[in-house]
């Protein structure tokens, strides 16, 4: 097993956050950082708590999909937030996670990470990152939001499964050299904190602006599979709710669910 880089003191060096990273729980091995974070959150843990692991034995994505998490080479982290706003703000958290990862990867690894709507972070159309966000809703209030992020940093893509959604990559494979995991993690946490502060202080539109600048979707012809059929058209913009506006035959359509396929590039 590779030695662990995850040292709380080292991570906190140069970390200048208001909320994210108030407390760290670091594991050599865990079933899933999201699972543990949900338990901590329901037990009323401090906001900004970060759950970090070298290895996840049951890393998972949306709809129970597996997220393979080899030891010592990736970032498997979950951040717990207790937003005070109502559920109308939830879409901002979707965009926030994608923006934080894409910006951090550009800054630390110098790779052209882009976001496919709404929060799939890709390099050259290839997936190196998985985001699983979960919230607990009571009435019209959010009790907590947890943001789980898995990044293939120095992972050998041969150790990762090829899914129906394509062959995965890692930052090392794309860059051709080792990427500092501590520096990258610190940058992700820093950017999550900045975005969270913006949402909390009523400046959530900054997230939308940043998202537009990192988008791999806008301006492209896209296809969306919806429960009522397939929609094809030009992706024009996202609105304040993060919904994707598609100019299609028959008029402008707003899409808030479904998987987007980029038809041309």
């Amino acid at each position: 097993m590779a030695g662990s880089d995850w040292d709380e003191k080292k991570i906190k060096e140069g970390l200048n956050t208001e909320v994210v990273g108030t407390r760290f729980e670091i594991f050599q091995e865990i079933d899933s950082t999201n699972h543990h974070a949900m338990e901590l959150a329901s037990g009323g843990v401090e906001e900004g708590t970060v759950v970090l692991a070298e290895w996840q034995t049951e890393g998972r994505g949306r709809l129970g999909r597996e997220w393979v998490s080899p030891s010592g080479v990736g970032i498997y982290v979950t951040v717990i937030l207790h937003p005070e706003g109502g559920i109308a703000q939830l879409p901002k958290y979707t965009l926030l996670a994608g923006v934080a990862v894409a910006e951090a990867v550009r800054e630390v690894a110098g790779l052209p990470a882009e976001i496919k709507w709404p929060n799939d972070v890709l390099i050259d159309g290839k997936k190196f990152c998985g985001i699983l966000e979960e919230s607990f809703v009571s009435g019209s209030k959010i009790k907590y939001v947890i943001i789980g992020i898995g990044i293939n940093v120095n992972t050998d893509p041969a150790d990762l499964p090829v899914t129906p959604r394509g062959a995965p990559t890692s930052l090392k494979a794309e860059k051709g050299e080792h990427v500092d995991r501590v520096e990258l993690l610190r940058s992700v946490l820093q950017k999550l904190d900045t975005g969270y502060t913006e949402i909390r202080t009523g400046n959530g539109e900054n997230i939308i602006h940043k998202w537009r600048g990192l988008s791999a979707t806008l301006g492209h012809k896209v296809r969306v599979e919806l429960s009522g059929g397939t929609l094809e058209g030009q992706a024009v913009d996202i609105d304040d709710d993060g919904g994707l506006l598609i100019s299609a035959e028959g008029g402008m359509q707003k899409v808030t669910a479904g998987d987007i396929i980029i038809v041309n590039s």
Binding site: R62, P118, E134, S135, V145
Partner: peptide, 28 residues
């Protein structure tokens, strides 16, 4: 309820017995 890729767990605000489930799994 999944909205914009966020999985939102909806809690019961009352104690009681489920009389009926009105929506099919996977429905919008």
């Amino acid at each position: 309820i999944e909205a914009m890729k966020v999985m939102n767990e909806i809690e019961s605000e009352v104690k009681g017995r489920v009389k009926s489930v009105l929506v099919e799994n996977g429905q919008p």
